[in-house]
């Protein structure tokens, strides 16, 4: 993982951005952490075979190898049973699109899709996310090939500081996957668990409605 990150740092033509620098640094720390704890108990958290006796229920403790299906890819990470999906994404898998803001299910910045439903990744354990289809904002599109919702957010200037944006994009995407012709009220309801401190709600709602229209081919 660290090699990949270092590759990324080097491939940026010497023009290392602050974000890339910090990410590279974070990777280094993470690797040190893993090495230091490699001697601790490591449990395989993949669904265990049915226990033969009642008392044979597996208890996950120490470091746990979790296997996650994220954005169509199988990924693994060594985490504690208590580690949230959000911390796993950000600190172990270099997926920092989901933002850590309140870490207690109030702001919506960490929203991801779990089996196509919006979920706060700060309120879900990584061990509990195994076997489910997880989509983060990175899985919706790329700067070169944006999803209709992402494109609409750009076109409608639906952000100021941008920190809440991934959560809103994911929540709007979840709505449009279910409802191709939402009303303004539907959009407001879908976004009710996301907070924007800059107050860009009107543009966010416009963007969601425009994306819906575009997706319908209207």
């Amino acid at each position: 993982m660290s090699e990949e990150k270092n590759d990324r740092l080097e491939s940026s033509n010497g023009d290392v951005s602050r974000r890339q620098f910090l990410k590279g640094l974070g990777g280094g720390i993470a690797v040190t952490g893993v090495l230091a704890t490699a001697t601790e108990t490591e449990t395989e958290a993949h669904p265990a075979p049915e226990p033969a006796s009642a008392s044979a229920v597996q208890r996950l403790r120490g470091k746990v190898r979790v296997r996650l299906n994220i954005n169509g890819q199988e990924m693994t990470a060594l985490v504690e049973p208590r580690t949230t999906l959000l911390n796993t994404l950000r600190d172990h898998l270099d997926l920092t699109g989901a933002k850590k803001v309140c870490d207690r299910g109030s702001c919506g910045c960490c929203t991801v899709l779990v089996n196509d439903k919006p979920v706060y990744s700060c309120m879900m354990l990584a061990v509990d996310a195994q076997g489910k289809k997880i989509t983060t904002v990175e899985g919706l599109g790329t700067p070169e090939k944006m999803s209709p919702v992402q494109e609409a957010f750009v076109e409608h200037d639906a952000l100021m500081c941008g920190f809440c944006t991934p959560g809103f994009v994911v929540s709007c995407t979840a709505l449009l996957q279910k409802n191709r012709n939402p009303s303004l009220e539907d959009v407001k309801k879908a976004c009710s668990g996301n907070v924007c401190r800059c107050g860009t709600y009107p543009h966010i709602f416009e963007a969601a409605l425009a994306a819906a229209k575009k997706m319908r081919g209207a």
């Binding site: 299910g105 439903k117 919006p118 979920v119 309120m123 979840a174 309801k189 879908a190 009710s192 668990g193």
Partner: peptide
């Protein structure tokens, strides 16, 4: 109760 992301869980 909460928003959609809460109600799903």
């Amino acid at each position: 109760i909460g928003g959609m992301a809460i109600q799903g869980r």
